[in-house]
Design a protein around this nucleic acid. Structure first.
Lengths: 232, 232
DNA sequence: CAAGCTTTTTGCGCCTGCTCAAACACTTTC
DNA sequence: GAAAGTGTTTGAGCAGGCGCAAAAAGCTTG
């Protein structure tokens, strides 16, 4: 059995202020797994055999409808807990998690969840906060998709992406993982054609710079105004 | 200080299998409050002073956008915990909860949450399941609103309403609290005009029967087919 | 029971954004 | 470095559903 060093997780909010012995105890059941770009960590409807903490990389969580349409539920970044299906009372995963960059995750068997929160109740409490935050995100998206026009929704999605994974460059803020127009369409409830048109228009204004699976925001304030401002 | 009988909550899933002493302990800090139809239990952005369990009645939870547009987040029914803002790490309520029928709720001060889950960890675990369920609902709605046409979304919303609060009558299933066309529009991300047109069309087919703040589903299977079926 | 208010219906015109098609650009593979 | 694969752009046409307006239908209040 491979040993996992507690320093890998000691800094994460989920495990903050936990004694070293507790961290070692928690890590005892964990495996560390590599997911090369494109590989799925788990599939929608698959039995929820594990839950995870992402150590490195980036995942895209999607759901497909009965007729094959897809939406992007969220992107998962380092330090986040994910795949907590059994914690919210599900037997299977409600979505598919796919690595969009080479990723490393810790995995615990689903059966470890109950004993773990029994011994360390703050884990339940912190997971509740995480899930609560996701619920609010989902409600924000519902509010936006219900009431706002596509361009504004795309602006908001782009801002979120830069906050989640923005890397500052001399040119502006770059979304630091591969994102397709299709991804943005599935985040905002529109089509890849419409996203492409909107980004092209912004690019011709010099506000962003596109590229294959690449978006650089040259003028974040401008995008912010599109997202939040009045019609001016 | 008024005493609240533990029999009021002993049957609720949230408190299932808890000893009588624990229930009494939990109830010690609770107040029971009446909300006549139309009164708000709490307002969006208000400081989250309390969390609640609904004993009787029905609430509508809404959010308004900066420019005054509104969406319906959910309806709350008897037995449900709600207003758990502080449990998910918020200082204020993210939405407004309004009684749509005369309602009675138990209220605990927000400050009681941490001690309560420290003493009864299963409360955190069960709240996590509740919030997780809401997250899945929100994702379902996002999926639907992103990928489906309005008529199908209205069909789904109507089915949900009948499952949440349907009363069987000889004529069909009646949604057992006042729902306006506007409510359904705000649930499905459309306008009250479109909802009215759709319900009128269904009514002329004999599948539903409308009325002021009233919807009777005469042919639930038909509505189910609209929601789930292929295009036939 | 008349007046006033809220909710619902319906008509009409229009626009946002979708669909489909085709070309183009960039990467990866052999 | 050609070929194949994947992602992006752009045009043209069209329609689902929105916005507005006005009337009708139900409550409810004095």
């Amino acid at each position: 059995m491979s040993h996992i060093d507690r320093s890998l997780i000691a800094e994460l909010p989920l495990f903050a202020d936990m004694p070293a012995a507790a961290l070692d105890d928690i890590l005892h059941e964990a495996r560390s797994l590599r997911y090369p770009k494109g590989k799925a960590v788990f599939q929608q409807n698959e039995e929820a055999h594990s839950f995870f903490v992402l150590l490195h990389g980036r995942l895209r969580v999607t759901q497909v409808t009965a007729d094959g349409q897809q939406i992007v539920v969220r992107f998962v970044g380092p330090g986040e807990i994910f795949g907590v299906a059994q914690a919210i009372g599900r037997k299977d995963y409600p979505g598919t998690a796919t690595a969009v960059t080479d990723s490393i995750a810790l995995a615990w068997p689903a059966s470890a969840w109950q004993p773990m929160i029994a011994r360390y109740p703050q884990l339940a409490s912190r997971t509740l906060q995480t899930v609560g935050g996701r619920l609010q995100d989902a409600h924000s998206r519902l509010r936006e998709i219900s009431t706002e026009q596509v361009e504004r929704r795309v602006a908001r999605a782009l801002l979120r992406l830069t906050h989640q994974a923005g890397r500052k460059t001399p040119e502006g803020v770059l979304v630091d993982f591969p994102v397709t127009r299709q991804d943005i369409a599935e985040l905002t409830g529109t089509t890849l054609y419409t996203v492409s048109r909107i980004l092209s228009a912004w690019e011709s204004n010099g506000w962003v710079e596109g590229g294959r699976q690449r978006i650089l925001v040259r003028d974040p304030h401008r995008i912010f105004l599109l997202a939040e401002g009045d019609g001016t």
